[in-house]
Design a binder for these strands. Structure first.
Lengths: 151, 151
DNA sequence: TTAAAAATTGTTATATTATAACATTAAAGT
DNA sequence: ACTTTAATGTTATAATATAACAATTTTTAA
């Protein structure tokens, strides 16, 4: 599904961008938060919270559910990570500096997910909700299906 | 949020349409399934599985979690009910004979949800996924925010 | 019409996902 | 340095959902 050539590069660039964003905004990118973000970025398959927990236990931490969920809360709030509600899993944001018209393609065969953006989509959605005089706060748009490589 | 004038009528028409659909398709609309659908339609606030369970217990059933989840599975498969993944709740489908370009507006104040359709939306989404050579199987589109009455 | 097969429901147990509440430690502000 | 705030540790539990097998009901078909 993905165009990522060298995933090590992919991870490192995500980590350093996260570092910058936190610095710019005076947010504390602690070791725990870093490690959780890195674990999420380990693959393009969205990570489950309890899988992250198991991996954390293998490291220095005395990790328990709140350990992971608190780190996830931080990463979600800062926009470094997205939660995919349709599969209860977490994926690193591929462009954490701007979030416009994002949606997710999730392959039910290889389990990889890809974040996409489409201005036309945003426009269509805005048009639709304006008709309903609705003030949107959060949009969830996830497409489950088969990616090009898997079909 | 809703234009429903008389909710009794709203419920009864949903129930009788469900009855018809099941009959047409040779599906068994058992008492249990009927009751669960009716409980979901009790309000336009999406129903939580365990709330349905509690209400069922007040009736004739010896209800346990699988009782509810199996009825929900049936109703979801037949398209009589939708699951809202962003809030883990279930809502009656307002037009179960055709599902095209549906999405949901969910008010975080009054908790009501409204099913909407927008062909432009469907088109924009299809355009977007075609670019990615992705074969969609299920689309989740939910907008959390404030409805007209609540803002 | 009755036996076999299939579908539905009952029941017990457990898996999965997530948060509350309070204690402790570390960092930042004054 | 001391106070406050933020982050993490820890225990317990809440909320959501499914597995596995037994009993029953409905349908099929001999």
């Amino acid at each position: 599904m993905l165009d990522c050539q060298d995933h090590e590069v992919c991870i490192e660039s995500a980590m350093s961008e996260a570092e910058s964003i936190c610095q710019e905004n005076g947010l504390r990118f602690t070791e725990l938060r870093k490690e959780v973000l890195r674990l999420i970025w380990l693959s393009h398959v969205p990570a489950k919270a309890y899988d992250i927990l198991e991996k954390l236990k293998g490291k220095a931490w005395s990790a328990k559910p709140p350990t992971v969920y608190r780190a996830l809360d931080f990463l979600l709030e800062t926009g470094l990570v997205h939660k995919l509600d349709s599969i209860n899993a977490y994926i690193g944001c591929s462009h954490p500096r701007e979030h416009n018209g994002c949606y997710f393609l999730i392959c039910t065969d290889c389990n990889e997910a890809k974040e996409c953006c489409s201005p036309e989509l945003t426009d269509a959605i805005e048009l639709a909700w304006n008709k309903n005089s609705f003030r949107p706060q959060k949009v969830t748009l996830e497409v489950l299906g088969q990616c090009g490589e898997c079909e």
